[in-house]
Amino acid sequence: MTRANFPRWLLVPAVLGALLVAVPIGAMALTVDWANFGALITSEASRAALWLSLRTAAASTVFCLLLGIPLALVLARTSGTAATLLRSLVLLPLVLPPVVGGIALLQAFGRRGILGHTLDVLGLEIAFSTTAVVIAQTFVAMPFLVLSLEGALRAAGTRYEDVAATLGAGPTTVFTRVTLPLALPGLVSGTILAFARCLGEFGATITFAGSLQGTTRTLPLEIYLQREGDPRAAVALSLVLVAVAVLVIGFTRARPGSLSAGTS
């Protein structure tokens, strides 16, 4: 913003673009019932939803890391048709409507899904449980981590890894001591993005996990339900999610270059 080295007329659509986001968010902040704000967001149902959201999003983020870090490494260090196909597959939830993801999860893990019988034998009941929420969130959020980390790994290159290997470090030591620290900014921003996506998950959860207070009704589901019963509570809770989102963006912004590492 220091020098205007762009055509001035571009300012008009740029301002419009910014307003498209700012006006609705601002309107929500203006219409919220501030006098009862505290009561609205601390009702039993609201607290249960917020607590469930935080717990499930944290658990899902851990699963995203456990599965997503190896995936990102494999994708960053391989090439060819197979790698391209694998990348397209892993990124699919990013472009799929979440409802479609929920339906797909039902076909796999649902009671009558292809794995349903096996899970039943093992005594695992996934439908309508908090586990289902975590699976749904991991499904939709993992691509954010993989995309971000793979970019960082590719940007870091393999030079230091090669040097460490010639100095006698084993593959696992190289991975934990060289590869991951080098890609840390991408890993951090990917983790934050994945956590934020988990918090906002709605479509796959309501399709796959159902909606029950304290078990599967996360904050977005509670907001959607409150729209019918108490619209003021829906607006107040929405503002809470906006505040969380602002915090998340703040975290990412606090690390300069961390986002660009993921997208380069």
Binding site: G110, F128, I206, G210, L212, T216, L225
Partner: peptide
């Protein structure tokens, strides 16, 4: 004691139709 409280009657029907409930 329901396992899920859905948003609309069609959602309830959907869960039964798919055999989840």
């Amino acid at each position: 004691k329901p396992v899920s409280e859905e948003q609309s009657v069609t959602d309830v029907l959907g869960k039964v139709r798919s055999g989840e409930a």
